[in-house]
Design a protein around this nucleic acid. Structure first.
Length: 526
DNA sequence: GCCACAATAT
DNA sequence: CATATTGTGG
């Protein structure tokens, strides 16, 4: 098969021994011909399909044992009967599974839940409970995931020196601990498991996890929905370029952020409410005070903002069933739809962050619909969150926020046209991901981090679906806005750890999101 | 030619 | 099951 329909090329190919030359795109007729050719060949007859001559077919003299011909004739008749179904001839190829964020997130939940050591394809698959997903799919993804972790660890190790420098340069200003910690994290491949655990724990708040078939009530935001519109992202090139260097540190631009190119960011910058360039306001940071330094990143380039908040439009309560997890992507790139009037970004950018999210932040007005995207809330939230919608990047919701958000959302219409209001519950702090040096922004769904399942509400929602985490069973349903300190780490350590999680998680997501599914990768239809 | 991804083979 | 290889596509 070739896209080259140049006659001379075709002839040359035939001369060279090609039996049949199909010009792409392959048509039904082509298939029909191939089939005819195949059958005829089986029967030892000569085929008269186009100019085929001397094609390598079975020896004419070969005696058929009958089975072949029987099958052949069967097919033949069938074929005749259903003239129009040549497609049948084409092996029903299973579409590729595209690991959209929500799916990946489920995967992570599973891993986390099951426990790294026991997280094998079978178990993960079982836990995920996603129709259409196969063990092989999971195995493949798990492989990728492990490789990723390995790489992260390795890079961290190798770039220790570099990172020290990097951190000292700009990033460190705000997060001295981050630098060291992150390098530590990668120090040894042996820590890989540990890293994994952290990673697994980091994703979005699990409270909303609603695997397949579990209904969701109207007041629940299903975070499992697409975290982002898959194709609503910037072309992957950009990340490739950044990929080489300080990836580890999370400097890469998050794909979540991407839907907005730098140019776009700049262009849309106006929406940004207040962008806090806190990069240098180190004094405001206190260990455990997650709300503050987040925005460091911003600094550089975009200055801010946001972005994608537009994505937020079209929030819906969509009950995202598992069946939705694997699906077709709109295949639309770069929509360029940005609603500037999204209060979201504004609020977040300003007081939300600055004030450490004091209670009752209003996130209202998710309105509008994104034409080409599905409107799973998660996607919106995430984008919101991650990108900066908030301000810059690096804004993170923590559990409490999410939880509050979840609880607070009401009237989210399915059509996405109403303007639901949500309040952020607790005061929480957001943790930051930060960007690095060049201000590349870092953000991702995974920034929702870490406090997975620590909250009763969350657990409640998950009850029917998620078993208690295999590890991390401290169930201390903390209501406090701070992260649970499960490792008896100092607040500072905890923070750093969290940051590590962020970086690592973000990194994966960056890669993950970077992938632009091809049109051929249709998603499984449950 | 390289890379990432998911599928598939080992 | 883990890992290597393959096929596709950007």
């Amino acid at each position: 098969m070739s896209a080259d329909d140049n006659e001379s090329v075709i002839l040359k190919s035939l001369e060279g021994g090609v039996a049949y030359y199909i010009v792409k795109p392959v048509s039904k007729d082509d298939i029909k011909n191939v089939w005819q050719y195949a059958v005829a060949a089986k029967k030892g007859k000569s085929v008269v399909i186009e100019e085929i001559e001397g094609a390598p077919r079975e020896a004419p003299g070969e005696v058929d044992d009958g089975s072949n011909s029987e099958i052949s004739s069967d097919t033949n008749e069938e074929q005749r009967r259903e003239d129009d179904n040549e497609e049948r001839m084409v092996a029903p190829k299973k579409p590729k599974v595209v690991w959209i964020n929500s799916l990946h997130y489920q995967f992570l939940l599973a891993v986390r839940h099951i426990g790294l050591d026991r997280a094998v394809p079978k178990n993960i698959l079982e836990f995920m409970n996603v129709p259409g997903l196969t063990r092989a799919n999971v195995a493949s993804h798990l492989q990728k995931y492990r490789i990723f972790l390995k790489r992260v660890a390795e890079k961290a190790r190798l770039s220790k020196c570099l990172s020290d420098r990097v951190f000292r340069s700009s990033f460190a200003v705000g997060h001295p601990g981050l630098a060291f910690n992150s390098t530590e994290a990668g120090d040894q491949y042996s820590q890989y498991l540990k890293l994994q655990q952290q990673m697994g724990a980091s994703p979005i708040n699990a409270s909303v996890f609603q695997p397949s078939s579990v209904g969701i009530d109207g007041n629940t935001i299903n975070l499992l929905g697409l975290i982002q519109c898959p194709n609503y992202q910037q072309s992957s090139r950009s990340s490739n370029t950044m990929r080489s260097v300080t990836q580890l540190i999370g400097s890469g631009q998050s794909r979540l952020l991407n839907p907005i190119t730098q140019a776009n960011l700049l262009r849309h910058q106006p929406w940004v409410g207040n962008v806090n360039h806190q990069l240098h306001s180190q004094e405001s940071r206190h260990p455990g005070d997650f709300g503050k330094q987040q925005l460091m990143n911003n600094h550089g380039s975009s200055g801010g903002m946001s972005s994608n908040s537009a994505d937020i439009t079209g929030l819906t309560t969509n009950n995202i069933l598992a069946s939705n997890l694997i699906q077709m992507f709109p295949q639309v790139k770069q929509q360029g739809i940005f609603t500037n009037n999204n209060p979201f970004s504004y609020n977040f950018g300003t007081s939300g962050i600055q004030n450490n999210f004091t209670n009752q932040q209003l996130i209202g007005n998710f309105s509008g619909t994104h034409p080409n995207c599905r409107s799973e809330i998660l996607g919106k939230l995430n984008n919101l969150n991650g990108t900066g919608g908030l301000s810059s990047n690096g804004f993170n919701f923590n559990n409490e926020i999410i939880n509050g958000l979840t609880k607070g959302v009401r009237n989210v219409s399915l059509s996405g046209t109403t303007a639901p209001m949500a309040t952020l519950g607790g005061s929480s702090s957001s943790s930051s991901s930060a960007g690095f040096e060049t201000s590349t922004t870092t953000s991702s769904a995974y920034q929702f981090l870490k406090v997975f399942n620590k909250n009763k509400e969350d657990q409640h929602q998950n009850v029917s679906v998620l078993p208690p985490p295999a590890e991390n069973n401290d169930n201390n349903s903390t209501t406090a806005p701070t992260l649970v300190n499960k490792n008896s780490m100092s607040p500072e350590q905890e923070l750093d750890k969290t940051l590590d999680d962020l970086m690592i998680s973000n990194l994966f997501m960056d890669q993950h999101n970077n992938y632009q599914p091809s049109s051929s990768q249709v998603h499984i239809k449950p």
